[in-house]
Amino acid sequence: MNDITPQEARARLAHAEAATERRTGDRRVHGRATAAFGLIMGAYLTLSRLGEGTGWQTPLLAAYAGLLVLLTLWQTRATRSWPRRARTICYSGLAGSFLLFMAGVMTFNYREHQRELAGLATAEEPGLLVLAGVLVAVPMVLAGLVVQRGTRA
């Protein structure tokens, strides 16, 4: 039989509660990394379109890939746990940003093709490119904020 006094039970409940609160450091890292992934994806979409035909696309792609690798390494090495539901939230944000990224690429390709057919200049409006970059970043930035703030287990 498990004999336990009310005081002991309260102490164990306090211990259990404290175990949840100790994961704030990992939450912060996962949250910031997720938001940064989104910002990098959004910036890449905008800058790669703005830099079309300028010779900056290859260095930009290398910088994009390099930043993603560095961010992944930092996230992996700076944390020792995935707080409750954090991974699901991060992957949901990634799925949202990725879908918007692909939608952006397809939309801009379509618009470029239409302008070519109409004999117009092929360059996209910078304001629209910035807006698309911001939209791509939003799901992962939101996911990062949710992870950093934490959800009840």
Partner: peptide
């Protein structure tokens, strides 16, 4: 109990 309490707060821990 301490092990399970620690793991309850996470999806996975080292």
């Amino acid at each position: 109990f301490s092990i399970v309490a620690t793991l309850a707060a996470v999806d996975e821990a080292e």
